Computed example of a mutant assay.
Amino acid sequence: MSASLIRFENVSKAFGSTVVIDDLNLDVRKGEFLTLLGPSGSGKTTTLLMLAGFEAPSGGTILVDGKRIDDLPAHRRGMGVVFQNYALFPHLTVAQNVAFPLQMRGVPRGEIARRVDAALDRVQLRHLSSRKPSQLSGGQQQRVALTRCLVFEPKVILMDEPLSALDKQLRERLQLEIRELYRREGLTVVFVTHDQSEALTMSDRIAVFNRGAIAQIGTPADIYDRPANRFVSEFIGETNLLEAEVTGRGDDHLDLALEGGPGIRVPGRCEDRAVAVSIRPERLVLDAPELDNHLDATVDDVVYQGNHLRIHLSCGPLRLVAQSERRIEPPVVGRKVRVSFAAEDCTVLTE
């Protein structure tokens, strides 16, 4: 991956006495797809708006290619922006919408026509060039908005929840289309979403926001498999988060007592006494004696979810969720089972 293209240095943003972003330091690498992920009010959209030039930082510096931009107006930053509501001009045709940013930049008319046709060809919408936005589906409108953003060849593409208004199937299809377009064109993309699945699907790296700060940044595998804290563990996907007490320490492992008494062994080192253990549901296996850790449990419920079964379990005061392949015979509710999991599938969390 290339060196940093965008850098936030000690950036803060306050609205009156309310601090929305607190001392943000963030690098965006050239040619990467970086997603800003977090719940509502976490600061991700405010960060994007400051980068786009629609909000001014209260403090700190934003740089692109080593040059400060936080004092430049939005139209001089060379960034394309795609919003959730598409923001297409309803009185203009598809071709006219796509041509608009080129006209604003004084591109010659013949060059505009050539670039608009080529851009619409790339997203397979040239045959709809004379239609108005109201004559298009939601997915087609979103492609037009993306094409209008790309046609003037911006340095960076900024996307704020661009797919959230679409139905599930169309959203998933456009996720892959945007990712393929990003790779083909060699774009740098900063993408905002609250959808964890969307972030895992599309991103090179994810910055998880919580209360105006980055709780963790890393690849999708880093974020999902090695969460840095309880917030990330619970916000990304689903997890079993079990409170535990450290009862022994080895060179490379910890012995833990879970709530209710069961003991397990996990990898890692930690000086804290009270910790939490994160175990993803798909890492729990019923009756697997070859694995490291075992808990005796009762099956409380089995839920069919298409490509897998969701199994609710109780282990004394503990409540667990396991995930099993659909083709495996589901356990009977009320049955006593042994739940097993490997030590390396556990993440110990201290904060």
Rank of each mutant, 00 (worst) to 15 (best):
A3C: 01
N10R: 14
V11E: 13
S12D: 03
F15G: 13
F15Q: 12
S17F: 08
V19W: 05
V20I: 13
L26K: 05
E32S: 14
L34Y: 00
L34M: 02
L37V: 03
G38P: 02
P39S: 10
G41Q: 13
G43A: 05
K44N: 03
K44V: 08
T46Y: 07
T47F: 02
M50W: 07
M50A: 07
L51A: 12
F54K: 11
E55Y: 11
A56M: 10
P57H: 04
P57C: 07
I69Y: 03
L72V: 05
P73F: 06
A74P: 04
A74L: 01
H75W: 12
G80K: 00
F83T: 03
N85A: 11
A87I: 09
L88M: 02
L88Q: 02
H91D: 11
T93E: 10
T93A: 04
A95T: 10
Q96E: 15
A99P: 04
Q103H: 14
Q103S: 11
Q103K: 15
R105K: 15
G106Y: 00
P108F: 09
R109H: 14
A113H: 12
R114V: 02
V116T: 11
V123R: 10
Q124F: 11
L125C: 08
R131K: 14
K132V: 03
P133R: 02
L136G: 04
S137H: 08
G139Y: 02
Q141W: 04
R143Y: 13
R143I: 06
A145S: 15
V151T: 09
F152G: 03
P154T: 00
I157R: 08
M159V: 09
L166V: 10
D167K: 05
Q169S: 10
L170E: 06
E172V: 13
E177T: 00
R179D: 00
E180T: 09
T188L: 01
V190Y: 01
V190M: 08
V192Y: 08
D204R: 03
N210M: 06
Q216T: 01
P220F: 07
A221W: 04
D222G: 02
D222N: 09
D225S: 12
D225P: 03
D225V: 07
R226F: 08
R226K: 07
P227R: 06
S233D: 07
E234H: 09
F235W: 03
F235L: 01
I236Y: 06
E238F: 06
E238A: 11
T247P: 10
G250S: 13
L256R: 08
G260Q: 12
G261I: 00
G261M: 09
G261C: 07
G263A: 12
V266Y: 08
P267D: 04
G268Q: 14
R269N: 09
R269Q: 10
C270S: 15
E271C: 01
V275Q: 02
S278A: 15
D292M: 04
N293A: 06
D296R: 15
D300P: 11
V303E: 14
Y304W: 05
G306C: 09
H308C: 07
L318C: 10
L318S: 10
R319C: 01
V321F: 02
V321P: 05
V321E: 14
E325K: 15
R327M: 06
R327Y: 14
V333S: 03
G334M: 12
G334W: 04
R335P: 00
V339A: 08
F341E: 03
A343L: 13
A343S: 12
E344R: 15
V348G: 12
V348K: 08
